[in-house]
Each structure stands twice: as structure tokens, then as C-alpha cells.
């Protein structure tokens, strides 16, 4: 019975060829792997793998070039938007994207991020927000929620002393150079499909030369950093991250979405 179904002509879903067969370096249940695959799915659908150059950040996804089977460049910590600017200006016909975490984009690279977006570079920025520095051992990040425990805020983030979490996506949506800004998640099949649509729209904007940055934030889990199982961390994310980082489009076609 199963043998009859498992035949090449009945194939319904297979990991895209643009993901290499290297075992992902991420922890079990980490959203990074899903987001990598979605981006490669989109590039495959756009038939653009020969014309795509990605910029890998520093952070958990520092080895992204090992997993994505497209041309990649590694940037210094936080400087991916600056490197992407250079690549895009040298090769205006190439599709250029950066893939960054919150420690890279919203902490050390805040200036690069804001200025690249303010210049309205025609690039795609994918921002993975898990509210913690995952790679280095779960320290507090600018995006850590109030009262959230991390290894450097063991009693919870004290907003009076450490400041409020940085909503960088809302911040950059105010800049005229931001053309498309959205926030998505990848913890359920429905959210994965929505995120894929958002990433596709972002790359399509770049192909159509809409003149501005397409910025896709993906709120993700960090089960190791949060000290939870993958399923628990997804539930915790729904209960705690989403009220503070609400999902949905923030800016579409250069116009802020009014709710």
C-alpha cells in the first residue's frame, strides 16, 4: 500500500534543491531552518538562483552560506546591509538579500540597517527576531521582552535599568526608503505559507525595481536560549512575543498600513 503511494510521480513536497544536504547547525525546532528553506523555495520559484547573491550575518545563521546553494558573501558583524549595498550598486541586475538575526541587525548593526534603509537601497532584508542572543548562550538582546529572563538578566529584563525592547521594524517603517515592511512567523503551517508569500513579495519588489528596501521580520523561537522544548517555546512565543511584536504588514507599497 505505502509502496504504491511512494512513487516519484506522486511526489507532493520535497525539500528544494537550493538547500544543500549539509545537516543544519541549528538546534532542534529552530525556525532558522524553515526560513532558509522558504527563501530558497521562493528563489527557485522565481527561477533566479543564478542571479541571487545573499549576505550572511554573524550569529546563529553565520553558516547560512553552507546551507543555501546560491552565491553568498559573509559580512562583518552587523554590516550585512552595507555589504549588500555595495553588491547591489555593482550589479544592479542581481537579486541581493541579507539574512540577519536580532543581535546582528538590531544591536551592533543598527546604524547600517537604518542608513541602508534610509538610502532606499533596492535590497531584501530578512530579519529573524527571537528576542535573545542565541549563538553566544542566551544573553539579553535589545529585542528581549520586559521581565524576560536571559543569562545576563536572570531576574528578568528591568525596563527602568535596561531600557525597553527595540521595535526596530516599526522604527524603520517610518523611513521613506522602506518600501515593504512586514512581520511574520513560522511556527504553524498557515504562518509558514503566509511568510512564504511575504518573502516572495519582497523579492518581486526587488525584481520590479520598486525603489526601496523590502524588509521581512520573522518572529522565531529560540528554545535553547529560552530553556524550553521546541513545542513549548512555540507556545510561549504565541503567548508572549506576539502581543509585543504583532504579526502583519506594517508598510505595503510605500504606504503605512493603518489599522
Amino acid at each position: 500500500m505505502l509502496k504504491e503511494i511512494i512513487q516519484p510521480e506522486n511526489l507532493a513536497y520535497k525539500k528544494t534543491e537550493l538547500m544543500t544536504d549539509t545537516v543544519l547547525s541549528y538546534c532542534p525546532g529552530c525556525g532558522h531552518g524553515t526560513i532558509h528553506r522558504l527563501m530558497m523555495d521562493v528563489i527557485e520559484e522565481l527561477d533566479a538562483w543564478e542571479d541571487t547573491i545573499g549576505v550572511a550575518p554573524v550569529g546563529c545563521s553565520v553558516l547560512a552560506y553552507e546551507f543555501m546553494n546560491v552565491d553568498m558573501q559573509q559580512a562583518a558583524h552587523g554590516r550585512a546591509p552595507a555589504v549588500a549595498t555595495g553588491i547591489k550598486r555593482c550589479w544592479p541586475d542581481k537579486l541581493v538579500f541579507t539574512y540577519q538575526g536580532d543581535g546582528d541587525l538590531a544591536a551592533i548593526g543598527t546604524a547600517e540597517t537604518i542608513h541602508a534603509i534610509n538610502r532606499g537601497e533596492n535590497i531584501v532584508i530578512v530579519f529573524v527576531n527571537n528576542g535573545i542572543y542565541g549563538m553566544t548562550g542566551g544573553q539579553m538582546a535589545p529585542t528581549t521582552l520586559p521581565n524576560m529572563k536571559s543569562s545576563t538578566s536572570p531576574y528578568g529584563r528591568d525596563v527602568d535599568m535596561m531600557g525597553a525592547p527595540l521595535k526596530i521594524t516599526e522604527l524603520i517603517s517610518q523611513l521613506p526608503g522602506a518600501y515593504y515592511v512586514t512581520r511574520q512567523a513560522v511556527h504553524t503551517p498557515a504562518h509558514v505559507r503566509k511568510t512564504k508569500k511575504a518573502i516572495k513579495k519582497a523579492f518581486q519588489n526587488q525584481i520590479d525595481k520598486k525603489g526601496g528596501v523590502s524588509f521581512v521580520e520573522v518572529v522565531s523561537n529560540c528554545n535553547s536560549g529560552w530553556k524550553m522544548t521546541p513545542v513549548q517555546s512555540n507556545e510561549w512565543m504565541v503567548d508572549n512575543m506576539f502581543p509585543f511584536y504583532p504579526l502583519g504588514d506594517i508598510k505595503v507599497d510605500g504606504e503605512l498600513v493603518t489599522k
Binding site: I5, A12, V23, H32, G33, R37
Partner: peptide
């Protein structure tokens, strides 16, 4: 039922789905 939900949420892309 071959809906592919498991395969698209799998972070490591280890699931291949067939449908007939």
C-alpha cells in the same frame, strides 16, 4: 492525506510527502 503540513513546518526539511 498528504497535506504537506508536516513537511513545510519541518525546520530541517527532512520530510518528503507523496500523495495519490
Amino acid at each position: 492525506i498528504g497535506c504537506t503540513n508536516c513537511a513545510i513546518v519541518c525546520p530541517d526539511g527532512v520530510i518528503t510527502v507523496y500523495k495519490k
